[in-house]
């Protein structure tokens, strides 16, 4: 019992340590000060008012949110069938395909970003929604496929066969058995898919989220300007 209590205390401490910076942000957002000071000298809503005046920030946040939803949905739609085939199928070149599809995980983000920049410029994709979606899928999809492949391969054996022997056609087997049992993997994938646009990179510390949103807005503006500049150069 003592061992279990100690274990729980340790876990609680770890959670506290990890979540403290995030939690602290909430009271600090009500600060009345002009600078970040803890404890704040008083509380007010001035920063919330300021935020709504900052249209760049709001636009960026909205774009990030839309993008997150889109990336999440597209990732699931592509990664789910891909994972089923890759985890179950027995065909020539399967291993190579898995390696290829998960290869972007191995590259440092900066390398990916540079490659995308060079590639996208040629196609006029910089700062466009299709470009953003493609770039984010490049990071979100490998995670999705990896996680879902694990989810598929850890499904208990024969449950799908049992379901079909009980009269379930394939789509109902998927809907009632496969999908619910893969749900932890699906949730993880959805979280990653959403995370990539919001945080820039899934493994980035959570504390930098706010900075990242603002950074994304700036980056988008620069991209747009760049793209327009490019177009003008072409026209000229």
């Amino acid at each position: 019992m003592i061992g279990r209590a100690a274990h729980r205390t340790l876990i609680a401490a770890l959670f506290l340590f990890l979540l403290a910076p995030v939690v602290l942000v909430i009271p600090m957002s009500f600060s009345a000060d002009a600078f970040l000071i803890w404890p704040p000298s008083g509380f007010s809503l001035r920063w919330y008012a300021a935020m709504w005046r900052e249209t760049k920030l709001i636009d960026a946040a909205r774009n990030s949110f839309l993008l997150a939803c889109l990336v999440c949905a597209v990732t699931l739609v592509i990664a789910m069938p891909a994972a089923l085939v890759l985890a179950r199928g027995r065909f020539r070149g399967r291993e190579a395909l898995v390696a290829l599809l998960t290869a972007p995980l191995l590259l440092p983000t900066i390398v990916l970003a540079l490659a995308l920049l060079i590639l996208f410029v040629g196609y006029g994709l910089i700062g466009s929604w299709p470009g953003l979606l493609l770039a984010h899928l490049l990071v979100a999809l490998p995670y999705g496929i990896r996680v879902l492949m694990t989810a598929v391969s850890t499904l208990p054996p024969a449950v799908e066969e049992a379901a079909s022997s009980l009269g379930a056609p394939p789509w109902r087997v998927f809907r009632r058995i496969t999908l619910p049992l893969m749900l932890p993997g699906v949730t993880a994938t959805a979280a990653t898919g959403r995370d990539v646009p919001l945080r820039g990179k899934p493994d980035r510390p959570a504390g930098r989220r706010g900075v990242s949103a603002a950074g994304a807005a700036d980056a988008q503006h620069r991209h747009r300007a760049g793209a327009r500049g490019g177009a003008r150069a072409d026209a000229g």
Binding site: P156, P157, A158, V159, E161, A162, A163, S164, S165, L166, G167, A168, P169, P170, V173, I177, L181
Partner: peptide, 18 residues
């Protein structure tokens, strides 16, 4: 296909839906 055969199968590992 199995879902149209109307056969009951009991598997070695039971294959209950967890």
């Amino acid at each position: 296909p199995p879902h149209r055969r109307d056969m009951g199968i009991v598997f070695q590992n039971y294959a209950l839906f967890p």
